[in-house]
Each structure stands twice: as structure tokens, then as C-alpha cells.
Design a protein around this nucleic acid. Structure first.
Lengths: 222, 222, 222, 222
DNA sequence: AATGAATGAGAGTTCATTCAT
DNA sequence: TATGAATGAACTCTCATTCAT
């Protein structure tokens, strides 16, 4: 039977999948190799044929499931149409899809939080290959929007972080409160983008606040 | 000797402090009772005099360090002066102080993420006693602002989450990237509030976007 | 009860004794910590309270049981009476007692042979602290005997090794063939010393051989 | 292909060679079948085609490398020329060559010491087929020498062991101290034979000792 | 109140052995 | 013949927990 050959080719992937489930469920330390093995339908020993230690299994699993994130982000941005606002919306929707909605992205973030200290190279890699470039993308988007007159230029420095924060916030709430968090994600996203683009203040609220030097940066009244 | 009596009264607190440090450092599963004991300057056995199991020690520690958060939040809001925008700013500064800047708040969040699944009552309690009330406070603040004409009313439903998200985002980045995250927190907060209140769009950007039904909700042009 | 205190003080020694028995029986690799524990009447975990690893247990055991050998050898020599021949006989009897007859000395030699490659410092220590000094003692004894006219001076260079060899040979036979080696040790020793002192040749055999340059070194006929 | 056939015929020998290297390096217990396989340039499974268990592989390897020793010893003795002393010298040189100098003989002795207890038939075989006959040969040689008046007759009982001891002693030192044992083997052998044949005492030393009944056996003064 | 020696149930890892290919 | 993926038992070491002192 080709059965054997087929299994062999698939085993590493199956083990990584099982490892993802197990580690996401309980974290690195509390997960036993036997848990992973059972989920993968093999015995403990078989895992060691493919991965030399629990640490390496963890690292390779995280790498495996974070590999395409950045690539996808780049591809997404490249294909975005329209003005800066449209592009920004597209990027945010990507973030929601990849971090908040997608179980893989979400749980990888959990593992970064819970076990990142034990895997500093992993964290560094994520900073270098995903977080920093993503923030840079957003910053460039904001700058381009400012240059074209669409966006207000004041948000240069930390705008990127503020802009994506709600998607990460939603992710975190899902991680902590799980299924008990009832929330209409679509409405949440709409609200996020609406608030982001238009701000909280009414014209009159703005008028009241502006003379009092609202937010640190000098700004011409609207 | 009074010394002995004083030590005795302080022991539980010292152990909780040590437990916080230890659990924050490595998470629940990877922390050994002996780590906690060593940090507290006692032996393993002593801990069991005050706390019957590792689980209970963890729970009581988390309770201990999250107890005042809600109280502080309530007190803070009650004492806030000025219009809704001022109150909102005060609340956000409280959030930054309690979650992002304060090591205790930050690490408790880490533990919620990493070990919350094993302590569902803890998570529930946090949801009931801290997260939900805090969100309610913000929602009420936004509603009051809308009623008084300061805030735009469109953000009723999910505004609270969006509004606080950047402080939680900063917290999470600190948890994951630790000291290697260089960031001027003051400037970040200023940017957050500025962007929150005034939005990203310039008047012309707004004009371009509005006819195209910018953000899902119908809205009178500004 | 003082039982506990008494046990506590004796435990390390009991474990070392058990470790000696177990390692001597099966060698380092084939001995399980559980074997040692069972012989010592404790559980596996208890051993780790006193010795951090199997390797360290092994090393400390070997150290423990070889510590007095050199000291004893020195004391013995210092107290030896009579001429050089008497002293030599005393030394050889010490060797037989310590290496061949004594189970501890014998089995330590076995462990040097079987596991010395894995514990090079141990081997070095034995060379530096036991083997080399012992050989030196014998060499000095031979030199003193030669100076006093008792011993033939030709054996300067390797005489020490040749002189002690039969005791080590007996040790090795005991290690390999164990109880099945039937041998009158006393007669063996007598024969050893007799042959050592007087040589194998008769005067006539000597006469036949001498002119033919018997053994490399030039030597006046007796 | 002839190549394949030739390889096939050589495989068992290659595996035995690899097994010798591996077992000699680390002993039976610490050697893994995979070590042997790697040295032999095959995979684990291939070994099991030729040898059913690790134990059998070990036994056959030891047999393989000790088979010719006795035959060689017999052949050597048969071809020895000259008087008893010459024959004895020839035998001793054979011993040095086979035990001390030859890596195979030396390491087989190591394995007898380290793992003999687990392979009692192996040890018995060695005793029956090598050690006992060799000792018998030497005994007969000594008896013949005594009969011909070359050798002193007093050494009948244990002379053989004493006579060969230095070669085994050298072997053991090499096994334990390895390359760090600096020693001129030729000079060592010369010294051994010289001392063996002529003894340690000078005529005057002998005179002093004799009246005191030096070595147990009554003996006419030289 | 506190100690710390001891337990015992695992945890990660190794490896002789098997067997479908 | 030979491979190498897979098993499963065993091994070293860990650690929450207990308890005599």
C-alpha cells in the first residue's frame, strides 16, 4: 500500500497541527508530549523521530503557523485599490481576519504572551518579520494619505499602533474571555473604522475643545 | 518577641508577592512551589501552611492583585472633573496607568491569557468585576457625551472597546516584546486621544468619503 | 524519635554504599537509579535529594571509596620495618590486601576499566593521587635497596611496575573470572615474592644465558 | 553485479568490525545499535538481518575477535626455538603483542571486565579456551625448564601467573590510563624478562635474606 | 510555625526491536 | 536485502505534596 508513503509525507504536518492544538489549549509547560502524540494519533516516540525536543517542536510549530502572515499582509496591501482610506480599511480587515477571527493567528499571539520569555528568538523573529513591517506598512499608508491630503498629518509618530489597536484588543478579549464574549464582529469593525476616520467629537464638541488645546498638537480649527 | 509576630502577620503577603513575581516570570505550570518559597525567603512547607495547593495560591494571588483595580476605577471616575471629553481622558489615563504602565496590572493580564483556561472562575470574576463594569463606565460616559452634544452618537454600540483599545494594545506589546519595545508612552497617549477625538480624516478627505457611504452607518454630513 | 535524625545523617552513606553495590554489579550505564534506591531502601526521588545526577552519584561514590587508599598506602610504608626487602614485601602485601582481596578496591578498578572513559577527571585523579605516587614509592624503595646493596640496580626504570604486576594480575583475574577462579592466594603471594626476589634461573641456567647477553643490560656474571 | 555480491559477503564482517569499535568505545550497555549501524555504514534494520539481538551481536563479535588468539598462541609455541628461557621469552613477547599492544586483544579484555557478568558463557569460554590453556602452556614450559635444570623448580604452583603478570599489568594500565600513559614498551619488556629470570636480589642481599627463610620455600643457597 | 527529608506520580527522552515497503 | 518510520517499555529527572520533628 501507498498508505505508508502517504502517511510519512503527512506526519510532520499532522504532528505540527496536533502540537498547535495542544499548546494552544494548555500552553507550553502544561502540555505533555503524550497529549500531542495522542492528538496526532501516534506514540510519543514517533514525535521524536521528527522533532528532537519539545522546545523545537514548539518553535517549528510556531514558525509553521506564522510563516505566511507577513507574506499575506504584503500581498494584501499590494492588491489594495482606491485611496488611502480604502487601503487602510483593507489592511484593518486583514488584521481582523488574521488575528481576531483566525484561530491560528489568535492562538499564536496567546503563545507569544504566555511562553515568549522562554523563546526569545521566536519573539524577536516575530517582531522583525511581522510586527515591525506591519507597523511600517500602516505608517507608510498614513504618510501617503497625509501627502495626498486625505489624512490629517498629526498622527505621524504613533498613528499606526493606534489605528490597529482595536483589532488586537478584540483578539485579546477573545483569548481571555473565549466564547463567553458575545460580540458582533462586523458591527465592531464598522464602528472601529468609523470612529477612526471621523473621530469622536461633534463639530460643536470640537469647537469647545479646540481653543483649550485639545490634544497636544497645534492644529488649525476645522 | 514582636519581631516574630510581625513576621507572622506579614508572611501571607510576602508569599503572595513572591508568588506574583514567580508566576509572572514563568506562568503557572512552569513555576515551582520552591521558586515561590525561595523568593519569599521561606521553605516549601511554609507555603502550605497558608495555602493548601498551588492552584489556590495562584488564585489568591491573582485576586489579591486585582482586587483594587475596580475600586480604583470607580473612585477615579467619581472624582473626574469637567466635560465628557475630560472625563474620558481621565479614564484613559487611568487605564494606561493600571494596565500598561503598572507591572501588576500588566502581568495579571498575562496570566489571564496564559492560564485563564485553567482558572475559569478567575476569568469570570474578572469579567464580572472588572472588564464589564469598566466597559459599562466608558459606555455611559460616551452616552452622556452624546446626550450633551459633545460626542457623536454613532459610536453607541462598540465605542467603549474601540476607545480603550490602544491602552490594551500597548499593554500587549509590552507583554510580548518587553524592554526591547522602545516607545515614548506620553506621546503615544497624546496621539491616541487626539486621534480618538478628532479622527483621521481631513475635511476634504471626509468630503470625498462621505458620499460613498464611508462607514456603514448613515450619517449626516458634517 | 531520634530515628529521623539518625537516618538523615546516615542516608548519604547508605546511598553511596548502595550505589557501590549496584554500579559494581552492572556498570554505570546498565545500573538504574531505581536499583540504587531499592538497595538503599529509599525511593528514586530521595537519591536526588543528595546527589544531583547519576553521574555525580557515581563520581562521589568512587571518590568516597578510593579516598583512603593512598593515605593507607603512605601510612603503611612509613611504618614498615626492616631492610628494603622487608619493606617491599610489606608493600606488596598491602597491594594484595587493597586491590585483590578487598572488594571495594577491586570493584573500583573494574569501574575504572569499564567507565573511565566517561569520567576522565576521575581517572586523572586516580592516576595523580594513587597510581603515580604508589609507583613512585616502589621506585624509591627499589632505589634505596640498590643503594644499600640489597637490590640489583638494573631494574631502575620499570622495576616498580614489574614488581607490583602480579597483585594487579590477580585482581584482574578475580574481576573477570570471579568466584570460579580457584586459587590459594597465600601461596600465590609467596610464589610472587620468592620469584621476584630470586628470579627464575638456576645458577647453571644463568651461566648458560649470561654469555648470550640475556636481557639487554650488560651485567657482570654472578 | 559482483559488487553487490561482494558487499553482501562482507557485510557481517563489516558489522562485527563496527560493533567492536562501538562496544570498545562505550561498553555494551551504553552502545546503541544505531552507533554500530552508523559505523558500519548501514541502517539499524540491516544489523537485525544478520544478528537477532544486541546480545548476540556482542557475543559473536567477541567470539570473532578472540577466536584466533589461542590458535596463534599454540602455533607460536610450537615454532619456538631454543632452550626453555628462549621459549619463555617468545611466549611473553606473544603476550605483549596480543594483549598489550594489539588493540583488539586489549579491548576484548576490557569488555570481559566490564560486561563479563552479563555474558557468563563468554567468560567461561575464554577461560576454557584461552586463559587456562595459556597458563597450562606456561606451566609446562616452566616444568620442562625445571626438568632440564634451567629453571628453579620452586615456582611450580603459581609461576605461570607471576610470569605473565607484567604483560597483563601493562594491558590494564593502557586500558585505564589510555594514551596518557607514557611508557617505553620495549624497555619495559626487557626489564620484565631480566627481572623475571634473574630476580631482584644481589648475591649479598640473597645471603642476608636466606638464613631468615626468605620466601617460604626451602632452597639451597646460591 | 516552619523545616526539609521523603514520596510517588509523572514528565521528557532514549532505544532495542519490528515490519511494511 | 535493506530501509526507516513507528512502537513501547524503560530510564533519568522533576515536583507538588506530606509529615515527623
Amino acid at each position: 500500500m501507498k498508505e505508508r508513503a502517504r502517511r510519512k509525507a503527512q506526519r510532520p504536518g499532522e504532528i505540527l497541527e496536533a502540537a498547535f492544538d495542544a499548546f494552544a489549549e494548555r500552553g507550553f509547560a502544561a502540555t505533555r508530549m503524550e497529549d500531542v502524540a495522542a492528538r496526532a494519533g501516534v506514540t510519543k516516540g514517533a514525535i521524536y523521530f521528527y522533532f528532537p525536543t519539545k522546545e523545537r517542536l514548539f518553535e517549528e510549530m510556531v514558525d509553521h503557523y506564522s510563516r505566511d502572515m507577513l507574506a499575506d499582509a504584503g500581498a494584501m496591501l499590494a492588491s489594495a485599490q482606491g485611496g488611502s482610506a480604502e487601503k487602510l480599511r483593507a489592511f484593518l480587515e486583514f488584521m481582523y481576519g488574521r488575528c481576531a477571527r483566525d484561530r491560528y493567528g489568535r492562538e499564536i499571539i496567546r503563545l507569544m504572551v504566555s511562553d515568549g520569555k522562554s523563546f526569545p528568538q521566536l519573539v524577536e523573529r516575530h517582531h522583525r518579520d511581522f510586527f515591525a513591517p506591519a507597523m511600517r506598512m500602516v505608517s507608510e499608508l498614513l504618510a501617503a494619505g497625509a501627502a495626498s491630503g486625505e489624512f490629517r498629518p498629526e498622527v505621524a509618530k504613533h498613528g499606526a499602533e493606534i489605528v490597529v489597536a482595536p483589532s488586537v484588543f478584540l483578539t485579546l478579549m477573545r483569548l481571555i474571555f473565549g466564547g463567553s464574549l458575545e460580540l458582533n464582529e462586523d458591527a465592531y469593525i464598522v464602528c472601529h473604522i468609523e470612529l477612526l476616520l471621523n473621530g469622536l467629537l461633534t463639530p460643536s464638541g470640537r469647537a469647545n475643545l479646540s481653543p483649550a488645546k485639545a490634544c497636544g498638537e497645534d492644529r488649525s480649527p476645522i
